[in-house]
Design a protein around this nucleic acid. Structure first.
Lengths: 201, 201
DNA sequence: TCTCTTATTGTACGATCATTCAACTAATAC
DNA sequence: GTATTAGTTGAATGATCGTACAATAAGAGA
């Protein structure tokens, strides 16, 4: 007594996983973890309830894959770029409209919250964050400005990351009189005040 | 066939509300909105399931009351203080260990997420945030530094709020080599770089 | 065309969700 | 001591949760 008349399209496992990941992000963005539901995600993906557990070990596995997908954008290969270009790239992609749009705020908030207690998510997050931060420190150090030691660069990197996250949160929650461009400009001005001279591209 | 042998203590409506609010914050901190459950909250408060709907209109009403309670700390009366003292007070209370402890991270993340879609919460948040921000702008303007116009003060205030939020998020998620004291120092240094001279108290 | 692989479906299951409400009882007033 | 008030309990309800799994069917290779 199962699965009758409706027709459907078979897709490769890879493509269907991608679709479920994107549907999951939409759900997370709409209602956080409370909306991150098998029913909601499958309905969003236009697919029946059983498919998530076919392509993913569990809902938790899907969540980890979603985080990986959301951070892939920030983890692009930046070798071959000058240190200044790398830093510009960090700032630009942090305020990129495609990835860091308002509709994704709740997805990020939900994931940051889950990171604290979810072991699999925590492991991936620590790994990605460390790499992200090290790249930024290397870029700052690589500029070769006088007076910027390694520990100073780490300090600046931490503050820049904090400023980016805070500005983005501010932008999502209270966007009146606020543009992504001005947020970027604030970041550049901050770096300038710290002795790191970057020309916005 | 209800409510038999167990003994309990009757408390005033005001005190019980307070206890339920604090239990709700604990639950939010432990597991975000997913753990913000009638069952969990009542168990945390040591109380039976029906009591929330007796003292609050609904679970949503409790959530709004929780947000009010969490922001009361930031909304203390600061009249009578000098502008510099007011700004120091902002920074200090933002990194106060009692209110902004790591165990509350998920509570704040959950509420920020809910603010987007929950009308009652949104209304309260907008009101409180606006007041919070205006007080900060007034304090910055009130210092009477040359070259700090109203619009510049608003810009600095926004950046300071962003930096505070970002540093606190950073502290909660990656606290290695990170202290609340150094985060405060970063804020003071930032203000200094913007021409706002404050002596940490 | 036939066979086989496997992507897909949808029901079933036990657990948990928010809310309602009649019954119960602790505390207060008298 | 008695009556009244109102704080508290816990069962009942219908909805939704994640997962398991047998049945079904789409599409590729023969």
């Amino acid at each position: 007594m199962v699965a009758k008349s409706t027709s459907f399209q078979r897709k490769s496992s890879q493509q269907r996983r991608q679709e479920l990941i994107e549907a999951g992000i939409v759900c997370l963005g709409k209602g956080g973890m409370s909306a991150f539901t098998i029913d909601h995600i499958c309905r969003q993906a236009g697919v029946s309830r059983g498919l998530i557990n076919h392509h993913f070990v569990s809902k938790d596995d899907l969540l980890v894959s979603i985080y990986a997908h959301m951070t892939d954008y920030l983890m692009r290969d930046s070798s071959g770029l000058s240190p200044r270009q790398q830093i510009s790239g960090f700032i630009d992609s942090s305020f990129d409209k495609n990835s860091f749009k308002k509709s994704n705020l709740r997805a990020w908030l939900a994931i940051w919250g889950e990171v604290v207690t979810n072991p699999n998510l925590k492991a991936l997050h620590q790994s990605r964050y460390q790499k992200y931060r090290q790249q930024l420190v290397s870029a700052i150090t690589g500029i070769g400005m006088s007076g910027i030691s390694s520990s100073v660069a780490e300090h600046i990197a931490r503050q820049l990351i904090a400023l980016i996250d805070g500005l983005w949160l501010e932008y999502c929650l209270h966007s009146e009189g606020f543009s992504l461009a001005s947020a970027k400009a604030d970041c550049y001005q901050f770096l300038q005040s710290q002795g790191v001279m970057i020309n916005p591209r």
